[in-house]
């Protein structure tokens, strides 16, 4: 079974800033899976600790930007004694092709995993052509 191996730790990668952020704090790149089916492109992002109301998804021209803010107030009154990972906000941008039905994009957040479904525009869906 391919599922049986042990998970290796992957260190969080800090976001290389292309533009200045207006909110102070570190930004990390959420790990992402992208896969495509006949009808849609699905982007799955892991953003542990981000609540639903703190996810910001914006689409400007061809760039899809996803940002997730961490609520640091949960860590108040706690003194770190041993740390293995850094806590920070998440941000990542994707360039979309023109074949996406922009109005049909939907997002869902479950257990720190954000699933974005980007349906394909009708004209780019594969069509089966029967041979007479």
């Amino acid at each position: 079974m391919p599922d049986e191996h042990e998970i290796a730790v992957r260190e969080k990668q800090e976001l290389a800033k292309k533009e200045e952020k207006t909110i102070p704090g570190r930004y990390y790149v959420p790990t992402a899976d992208i896969f495509e089916t006949e009808d849609a492109l699905t982007v799955i992002l892991e953003m542990p600790g981000v609540e639903k109301q703190h996810v910001d998804i914006a689409l400007e021209e061809d760039t899809l930007r996803v940002e997730g803010q961490i609520d640091f107030s949960k860590y108040q009154g706690m003194e770190p004694v041993y740390t293995e990972y850094n806590i920070g906000h998440y941000a990542r941008a994707f360039t979309l092709s023109g074949k996406i039905d922009r109005d049909g994009i939907s997002a869902q957040l479950d257990d720190g995993v954000l699933t974005l479904t980007l349906p394909k525009a009708k004209e780019s869906k594969p069509r089966r052509i029967a041979v007479n």
């Binding site: 042990e6 998970i7 290796a8 730790v9 860590y75 770190p80 293995e84 990972y85 479950d110 720190g112």
Partner: peptide, 23 residues
Amino acid sequence: GSYPPLNVFRKGDGFVLIAEVPG
């Protein structure tokens, strides 16, 4: 093993252990 990565905090008398387990 070493997954998941952990952070340990002191809170009052005890400890709080936090791990990221998305999905």
